[in-house]
Design a protein around this nucleic acid. Structure first.
Lengths: 241, 241
DNA sequence: CTATTCTCGAACCAATCGGTTCGATCCCTC
DNA sequence: GAGGGATCGAACCGATTGGTTCGAGAATAG
């Protein structure tokens, strides 16, 4: 019934090389092989999941939102869970790309950290990303692999990125950090202090203001530089006891 | 959902205006007034919700687990949501009590902080508490009040407790902190760095070992003392720009 | 004892769930 | 134009959902 789904008449068919092995089929794409239709389904699913969460969303809702018949969905995906997993995959990639795109600058150490922190906090406390995290956390009991992959592609890569940066700063003599991995953990949590968990639990209904974020990040960087700043920190002085 | 209006057929109508003030009913308890039965229902509901999450749990499951008929449940609670909210109320209280019970000591500053941190991290990254948090976060979109109250009674009170402690330490001259509220935020997030989010996302399937927790907490306290420790920190040197 | 009343347990409700099937139809390729 | 394959759309499936009703039976109070 004249949906917009047949946007691409017939081009774009061999866009995706048929997975990773040779696709022998000479004509057509084979059932469930049209990447445009796949994207269309995923986009509808994304909207529905974001609006209603995983359990409350029904396949019929997705059908309606995507403008695709239920039978077709089940040709492309083997059920709601697989659809959700595929969606997470896409989502993570784009989320991380957003962050990467936002930090390509050659700032000096302190400013670079602040800039990175502001981007990070702004992104992962934004409404859509918080909603996505709530959904993933909510199903983490039933689908731990999904949750774990989400963490690995998201927060873990963010921390790895931060560790790289810290390593560079240490090498350049701008920082003096005995354990950059630990430091990356600490700093990224400091960035989020007082914002992230409130947001997750819906105890902070609105997105945090840019001022709040900036104030938080600067406080974190200050604390961080006092501890790990150039000179002034002798490592051997570990805990008493 | 949304049909609570015709709940009472005609009997038991004066059961609930007893509320928290004097219940005038001289004999019997009135429908839905037996605290033991209420407790029994809540206990069954707790087990079911913990095992299956909010959406996946059905009232029939709770019926079965609690050993109570469905009709009775609907006498005590107006549906699954209300049952869940009541459950959260109980749960928060007991969780916080656990933490309080674990920190009544007169240790010196640094050791006291470590002890507090270990108790805190151990508690809120434990399997049952993590599961509870996942469930609450998962429904935070649909029931933001529940999530917000959970946060206020949990993390927020924990941070308030920590702030109190820091205030005492500052007064005693053991610490030099310009903003103890911010510092409490920072320290409590530092305690959890590298553990909490992994656990939430199921990226760390097992409860963290006591060694890991202790190592993390000590690192946090070290960092904290370097920044806020006695002397050696001149406050006026705030951030540039 | 009788009268009261709370709970049980099962039947019942309409709605919806995820998932399957199948003929009609559309579009592409030849 | 003809043939073939992918998609549509709707009916259909059994199971289950949150929620209601009601009579039988247990327990208590007078």
């Amino acid at each position: 019934m004249t949906r917009e789904n047949k946007a691409e008449p017939g081009l774009s068919d061999k866009a995706e090389e048929c997975g990773e092995v040779a696709c022998l089929r000479p004509q057509r794409l084979g059932a469930g092989q049209d990447p445009a239709k796949r994207k269309q389904i995923l986009e509808g699913a994304r909207r529905v999941f974001m609006r209603m969460g995983f359990d409350a969303a029904s396949v019929n809702d997705i059908t309606r939102e995507a403008g695709v018949s239920k039978g077709t969905i089940y040709v492309y995906f083997n059920g709601k869970e697989e659809l959700f997993e595929a969606l997470c995959e896409d989502y993570r990639a784009s989320m991380f790309a957003d962050l990467m795109a936002d930090i390509e600058h050659g700032l000096s150490g302190r400013d670079a950290l602040v800039k990175f922190g502001v981007s990070l906090v702004t992104l992962i406390t934004s409404e859509p990303v918080i909603r996505a995290q709530r959904i993933v956390i909510g199903v983490a009991d039933r689908m731990p692999e999904v949750g774990a992959r989400f963490y690995e592609r998201g927060p873990k890569r963010g921390k790895a990125l931060l560790k790289e940066f810290l390593d560079e700063q240490v090498a350049a003599g701008h920082l003096d950090i005995p354990d950059t991995e630990l430091a990356a953990h600490q700093l990224s949590e400091l960035f989020l202090a007082g914002i992230y968990r409130q947001r997750l639990f819906a105890a902070m209904p609105e997105e945090p203001s840019a001022e709040l974020i900036r104030k938080n990040v600067i406080a974190a960087v200050d604390l961080f530089f006092i501890a790990y700043g150039p000179r002034r920190y002798q490592n051997g002085k570990s805990e008493d006891k």
